[in-house]
Amino acid sequence: MATGSAGLAAYERVAAAIRSAIADGRLSPGERLPGNRTLADQHDVSLPTLQKAVGVLQDEGWLVARAAVGVYVSDNPPPADAAEPVDPRALRRTVVELQAEVRSLRQRVEHLEQG
């Protein structure tokens, strides 16, 4: 697994390992990943844990699922520097800032609609 993965949940360690493999070229864009059971065995995790990691990587744009075919490395994965884990505190700050901005925009729209 990736170094610096201490303190991460099992699915996060698996996701970090796959991100790293993509970022350093061990997995290439368009390459099909092994089946979920094989990947779960390779990373010594349960099938649900592996599926959660794959779901996270799909949401982040690293992987693409093709129905009834398999999971592939995205043709346009995020930049290599995106392979670094996200700081949860920074992510939380960003969410709070976005929520404040949405509230502000909502108020402006309501004001415009009333005027």
Rank of each mutant, 00 (worst) to 15 (best):
A82W: 01
L112I: 13
V95L: 11
Q42K: 03
P48Q: 02
I18H: 02
D59I: 04
R108D: 15
R37S: 06
L57P: 03
E110D: 15
P85A: 01
A17P: 01
P85R: 06
V86F: 00
V95F: 08
A65V: 07
A23T: 11
R89C: 01
L27G: 08
G35I: 05
A80C: 11
E97S: 11
V56P: 02
V45Q: 12
Q42T: 00
R66Q: 03
E97L: 10
D24N: 12
R19I: 01
N36V: 10
V71F: 03
A21C: 13
G55F: 02
A68M: 12
A2N: 09
V71D: 04
M1H: 14
S20G: 02
D59E: 12
L98F: 14
V64S: 01
G25R: 05
E97Q: 11
V95S: 10
T49Y: 09
R89W: 01
A100V: 14
D75P: 14
G4R: 03
Q107R: 14
R66W: 02
A65M: 04
Y11W: 13
S74M: 09
Q58W: 03
V96G: 05
E110W: 06
H111M: 04
E60T: 10
Q51T: 11
H43W: 09
R32M: 10
E12R: 15
V54S: 14
A21Y: 10
L39E: 09
R13W: 11
T94I: 05
R32W: 06
R108Y: 13
H111G: 06
Q114L: 11
S46C: 00
N76K: 04
R106F: 08
A15P: 13
N36T: 08
